[in-house]
Design a binder for these strands. Sequence first.
DNA 1: AATTGTGAATTGATTCACAGCT
DNA 2: AGCTGTGAATCAATTCACAATT
Lengths: 205, 205
Amino acid sequence: MSKLVIPRKAVYRLSLYHRGLQRLKANRVSTVSSAALAKAAGVKPTQLRKDLTYFGQFGTRGLGYNVDALSAKVTEVLGHARLQPVILVGLGHLGSALLRYSGFAKEGFEIVAAFDLEPRNPFPEMEINCLGMERLKDYVRGRDIRMAILAVPAAAAQEVVKQLVEAGIQGVLNFSPTLLQVPEGVVVNNVDLAIELEYLSYFIQ
Amino acid sequence: MSKLVIPRKAVYRLSLYHRGLQRLKANRVSTVSSAALAKAAGVKPTQLRKDLTYFGQFGTRGLGYNVDALSAKVTEVLGHARLQPVILVGLGHLGSALLRYSGFAKEGFEIVAAFDLEPRNPFPEMEINCLGMERLKDYVRGRDIRMAILAVPAAAAQEVVKQLVEAGIQGVLNFSPTLLQVPEGVVVNNVDLAIELEYLSYFIQ
DNA sequence: AATTGTGAATTGATTCACAGCT
DNA sequence: AGCTGTGAATCAATTCACAATT
């Protein structure tokens, strides 16, 4: 099966549609128009329809889309029918907050363990595995974990990502304001909070 | 003075260049080439040069850019020569973490107060003003604060943003997974953590 | 009548290729 | 010789306009 080419930005929006579809499913809505779903995602109807054409045709003209069918297809395209395990590295303020953030679970991700140099479990009520960095490699290798959330200080980020890659991690969601060097085949997605704030500030002058 | 048109994405990168320039300044580097600065920001040299042309010419051919001069200009274009005051709304896990996140300060933003329904100060050591929502309007109006970081539960986000707008806030950095309705002239920048993770996961199949 | 699907047109962003300075 | 500045070319994403289908 050859991977279809879906524009990067369309992939991003697919996640938004996915979220909208889940909500519709929960509310037992069986059919939705491109106009309605697009509105929920904050995009134009034509854009949604165009986005869907990158991997097929799912609607009924005059009627709209079957929520269950479209939802299943989007889930498949996004490639996480199953719950995806993720590890978190760095248990400072931000890392701790991310660990307790329920939004990841809602989208089908589970933080299965957290790592830090000083791995005391800050939330005994949470039954999360808080481990030392020295156990990272074994843990990741043994469980075929592919994704990591990185929330360590900027100065440590490059060294830690090296360890992650050696352990077999293929995707890193990086919260440290650092440009990470990674080998071919490893994907990094940066979330740079200060830059987002600066970007915002530009548009309110 | 008419505002120049700078492509959205170029503005985002400008913040990255700004960060790189600050570091160079701190290290007493007086001159930098587009190649070096672009590398630090993770972009191509031509892209950096093109980005700069949107608001002028600052380099010396054969030599490079004067760090101080370019830094001053980028600061001016980004529009925050002064420290920008920001308020934070929502003191749950994520909000608390953001409050203590030092990265904002490094880029010239100061969180001057935090608001919540139950405003006990979670960090007495921090000398931050933690106030009840009922005091939001007076606080913001009295100090000409324009930006807010929103980290409240999704269910509350729309109601809270309404209050922010009434108080005079013009820019919102929104961490709740919600599409906010705001009037013309108010800018929202969404940071959707779960979607970022999902986006990442797509590229590691 | 309503709504999808999609080529064509448009808009936006990036990269190239090289002229122009120091 | 080295590096910037930029028009032209390319590539990517969005929107339009409307035919096709139920």
